[in-house]
């Protein structure tokens, strides 16, 4: 089932944010939203209150993101088959992020793309054993390594799915 929040035929992508304690998360989420919109895909931010608020105040005119979802509600919508998205981009920098990504992969037939970053990105990435596309880089304060990898694979990801 794929039903986007507007009820029209456009594609949607959920950007599932983790704890915003790693600085690159908000910047990369906004950049990914911009990149998805260029591809005609509507981004929807799913996160806890702090993660959503950081995006919210960074894009007050809603150039990049118009839709937000509470993280618990997003999981509930998937679990109860009330709504799904065409893509799920999951931001991961710790064990909890891996748990969320595994849950989303189990609940949705749509492709799951994980963005793994932070100081321990290799160890965290090695914990991911379920099927998904991985984009991983050692990005903590500097988002450029993750942005470069995203630029390399995003056009292929959204055109091949």
């Amino acid at each position: 089932m794929t039903t986007n929040p507007k009820g029209d035929e456009g594609k949607t992508a959920a950007l599932v944010l983790g704890c915003p304690q790693v600085p690159v998360q908000t910047g990369i989420a906004l950049y990914l939203s911009y990149s998805l919109k260029k591809e005609g895909i509507e981004p929807v931010i799913a996160g806890n209150r702090a993660a959503r608020a950081l995006i919210d105040i960074s894009d007050p005119s809603r150039h990049y993101v118009e839709k937000f979802l509470d993280l618990d509600l997003y999981i509930e919508l998937l679990a109860e088959k009330k709504q799904d998205f065409d893509y799920h981009f999951v931001f991961i920098h710790n064990d909890a992020g891996v748990s969320y990504a595994a849950t989303i992969q189990a609940l949705s037939p749509a492709p799951v793309i994980v963005l793994v970053y932070g100081e321990h990105f290799r160890e965290v990435s090695d914990m991911i054993e379920f099927p998904c596309e991985k984009i991983a880089a050692k990005a903590v304060h500097n988002p450029m390594p993750l942005r470069r990898k995203l630029d390399e694979v995003l056009p292929w990801l959204v055109s091949s799915q």
Binding site: I75, A79, S99, T103
Partner: peptide
């Protein structure tokens, strides 16, 4: 994952 326990859907690696 997603199993409803109390008021929540469970999060985790299966």
């Amino acid at each position: 994952p997603g199993y409803r326990l109390f008021d929540m859907h469970m999060i985790g690696v299966p």
